[in-house]
Amino acid sequence: MKKNLMFLAVAAIGLASCNSGLKKGEGGMLYSIHEDKDGPTIKEGDFVAVNLIAKNDADSVLLNTYDSGQPSPSLVPKPQYKGDIFTALGLLSEGDSATIKLNADTMFKAMGQKPPGFKGKYVIYEIKVAKVISKGKLKDEIFKDRISQYFKTEGDKLKNAEPGKISKYVADKDLKVSKTASGLMYQITKQGSGPKIMQGDTAVINYTGQLLTGKVFDSSIKEVAQKNKIFNPMRPYQAIHIPVGVGAVIPGWDEGVQLLNKGSKATLVIPSKLGYGERGMQPIGPYSPLAFEIELVDIIHPNPNAPKPAMPQMLDAPRAQAAPQQ
């Protein structure tokens, strides 16, 4: 009996230490507000931009908005269940920071599925509220205009910061880059042999792509994907085939690949105008320069004897009407 009581006491102490400093909110949500600024709390329908790091119990990072260099924007929906992450946001205002701890089973049940490979009892969020635009009684047009202005201001900041990010990355990595007229920077790290690949050829490439923060977001190499915890068991890890010079890939790749011959390896530092531009593409944020390690494994030349595909017959396209004379 005493042993049982001792076990329960130890378990209670362990549970208390796991949730040390956290308060209990709706639906079993646990939270701690670290910075509590003045201002209205976030409400359903408001626009928010938050920086957050989501982890499991073992500190394995599930999501980190700091990697993309910008907070995650959202219109605040109605909570899916009592004590979800949107319930937690309702405790915060602009400038606040908090730790939010949610039961994983309850959370993923509401979402419809648990991410493959997820382990742990909780999902833990470290949140910093960067911006709140309250909907309140604002007319939709004014509300949308304020959100658009926020995106423009943030976009201008990212755009103006891009040259400095590129210069710092090149210096920190001690790269000896050459720069093309378009702004592409490259360093041949291993020289191949034979003629360079040309437009119309197909490039067979192994690659690893990363943000200039060092975060690897994609790779054709299984070991690299596993090391950087982006491995997808549904994906075949092998060299990819890219038709060259026909706009099948981002401009920085199209130009960079044509600098190589078979067997070459290179580092490409690609400004956003040659990448994903002002819009970005998850997990790549707007105005994000990128770095790629690429290897031109093989060159496949077009077969000159292959039959040319028949050109489809097309109706005349409508002509644009001339502007009326004033």
Results as ranks from 00 to 15, higher is better:
143 F>D: 01
316 D>M: 14
10 V>A: 15
77 P>Q: 06
87 T>H: 10
213 T>M: 05
172 D>L: 04
58 A>Y: 15
260 L>Q: 01
188 I>G: 01
75 L>S: 10
297 V>H: 01
318 P>L: 06
3 K>D: 14
69 G>K: 02
6 M>N: 11
319 R>Q: 14
187 Q>I: 08
208 T>C: 06
162 E>S: 01
324 P>F: 09
75 L>V: 13
75 L>M: 11
317 A>G: 11
214 G>K: 07
108 F>E: 03
302 P>Q: 11
233 P>N: 12
218 D>Y: 10
146 R>T: 01
231 F>Y: 15
94 E>Q: 12
214 G>Q: 10
217 F>E: 06
306 A>K: 11
63 L>Q: 13
297 V>K: 14
88 A>G: 12
285 G>F: 04
166 I>N: 02
94 E>R: 01
108 F>G: 03
229 K>Y: 11
233 P>I: 09
252 G>F: 04
258 Q>E: 12
278 E>P: 00
124 I>N: 08
179 K>H: 00
165 K>V: 14
181 A>G: 01
255 E>F: 07
119 K>S: 14
155 G>K: 00
184 L>I: 01
233 P>E: 12
185 M>R: 08
114 K>D: 01
110 A>K: 00
274 L>V: 10
268 L>Q: 05
255 E>N: 10
199 Q>N: 12
159 K>G: 00
186 Y>I: 02
112 G>E: 09
13 I>R: 09
293 E>T: 13
29 M>W: 07
159 K>E: 05
297 V>A: 11
321 Q>D: 13
48 V>G: 00
273 K>M: 04
195 P>R: 08
101 K>I: 05
162 E>F: 00
133 I>W: 09
95 G>A: 06
289 P>D: 11
98 A>Y: 05
310 A>D: 13
235 R>V: 09
188 I>R: 04
218 D>E: 15
219 S>K: 04
7 F>M: 12
119 K>P: 06
129 V>R: 00
223 E>P: 04
265 K>Y: 10
315 L>M: 14
104 A>H: 06
120 G>V: 08
148 S>T: 11
191 Q>A: 15
119 K>M: 12
205 I>H: 02
130 A>L: 05
251 P>L: 02
271 P>M: 06
310 A>K: 15
191 Q>G: 10
244 V>F: 09
187 Q>V: 08
223 E>H: 09
68 S>G: 13
315 L>V: 11
260 L>T: 01
272 S>E: 00
274 L>P: 06
111 M>I: 00
158 L>F: 04
283 P>M: 08
264 S>V: 08
122 Y>A: 07
110 A>N: 08
303 N>S: 13
118 F>N: 09
277 G>P: 03
293 E>W: 08
63 L>G: 05
147 I>E: 01
112 G>K: 03
285 G>D: 03
28 G>C: 08
70 Q>Y: 10
176 K>D: 14
240 I>T: 15
45 G>W: 04
74 S>D: 07
36 D>L: 08
284 I>S: 00
231 F>I: 10
74 S>I: 03
